[in-house]
Design a protein around this nucleic acid. Structure first.
Lengths: 246, 246
DNA sequence: CGGACCTTTGACCGCGGTCAACCTATGTGG
DNA sequence: CCACATAGGTTGACCGCGGTCAAAGGTCCG
């Protein structure tokens, strides 16, 4: 019976610049590694956890991607966010119920590092830098959620779609990928739901962007051909100050 | 020249059950009190902090209420949330820029306890319960933001308004107030903006609720007279689509 | 009182949702 | 190898929710 956990080596990890271990000293990283569990890969459509599951861990995406969503009473679902490598998942279970408030499924075969909350909290007591980094990652999650609120609250369909593509581009770029050419790991349905749009409206807006030469799309593959145009749609006022050299 | 800070006594505070000091031992509370600053009251329309301000503190609402919002490029603003006594404010500055991502203004004369981040982080190193409580309050903020995302993303105008009233009712009730009768400390404009609606649509939906006997409204005063009806609007499934006689 | 501000009400119309048909890619079995 | 099925995605026609513009109350201030 083989272990479901693989060896953990944060020092070697390509994501060390964005993960919880960021900024730690070598000996602190060693301590941190000891509490991290590498779980066996999660296959497409498998749950990392389900809404109402009791939780005792945070997760950091190691490879692949995930989608989080909330079921409402009628069985409908609202997608809350998409998670790429380096993203912290599971913060919704920090509140007093200790239960997850949303579900998270893999969009493709993916892997995560699991960090038991109890042990993380203990270790945070002795490593100030870990406390700081944890709070920073939490802060980024909160800012990201707030940006979503603005996006959903007072943006038109085309602004939503352009923003979605731009943000995704920036996230991939930050991970060392092109930023101008990437694959959507999620189906149209999920994107539309995430943006508070119908499937058809999303498709039409993508069509609009293609027609005007901002992007080209082949199935899940997206290529951004006019970054400036995209950005001018996101922020109608300024015709953009700085240019992207990606 | 009098001090701008008043004496802090968390043990006596009515909000000790929901504040950061929750669950701490008496001696731990003493330590915690030492880092808390009671600021002089903030008057209506005064800023607790502004977007892009450099931040070194979290705040807990002591009395009154606040509104947070983000300016977009064109000068428009999107209200992100409303804060009542016991709520934690300022988490948006935890991320790597150390700057606030939104602005917070007082809706009425209000007061806060200020908790310098640096000292909070230091103290969290020696008080495990404080770490836990901090994370829990953060978790509640995240869950609340996620609920807003669902609300803005796929709810109709009437569902948004009913949900807003219901959530506010529950928050007041949790604070020991009636829950069936309360005053809105924010103008219609802010509510509408918060819900992603126009001022006029909000007014019409309120009119709808009044006409059907769910609530009565007198200026800022709201009285919930048919809680069940309100709830059936929020979750159409439970009381299964009964028809409103217009 | 008069004036500013907040809120309600009315009329109109456009964005985006809904329903439906049509593609296109992938898979399955005869 | 092709008929067929299925799922994901696009396109078209229609229309209703909710935004916009406009004017008319209310309420509170001096």
């Amino acid at each position: 019976m083989e272990s479901i956990f693989q060896k953990v080596d944060c020092a070697q990890c390509k994501l060390s610049g964005v993960c919880l271990s960021r900024g730690l000293q070598p000996d602190e990283i060693k301590q941190f590694e000891r509490i991290v569990k590498r779980k066996r890969p999660v296959k497409e459509d498998q749950f990392l956890f389900r809404q109402e599951d009791h939780s005792q861990s945070l997760y950091v995406v190691k490879s692949g991607s995930f989608r989080s969503f909330i079921w409402d009473i009628e069985g409908g679902e609202q997608t809350i966010g998409f998670y790429l490598p380096g993203d912290l998942v599971g913060l919704d279970a920090l509140q007093t119920t200790d239960r997850h408030h949303c579900s998270v499924v893999a969009l493709e075969t993916s892997s995560v590092c699991e960090i038991p909350l109890q042990q993380l909290n203990d270790l945070a007591g002795t490593i100030p830098r870990l406390r700081i980094q944890l709070l920073r990652m939490i802060g980024e999650q909160i800012v990201s959620d707030q940006n979503n609120i603005v996006l959903l609250g007072n943006r038109t369909a085309i602004e939503k779609v352009a923003t979605f593509l731009l943000v995704l581009s920036q996230r991939y770029y930050a991970l060392g990928y092109s930023g101008k050419e990437f694959n959507l790991s999620m189906p149209r349905h999920d994107i539309a739901n995430y943006l508070g749009l119908s499937l058809e409206t999303l498709s039409r807006q993508l069509g609009f962007l293609i027609k005007h030469g901002a992007i080209s799309v082949k199935h899940r593959g997206v290529q951004i051909s006019d970054m400036r145009l995209l950005m001018s749609i996101v922020e109608p006022a300024t015709t953009k100050r700085f240019t992207y050299a990606m």
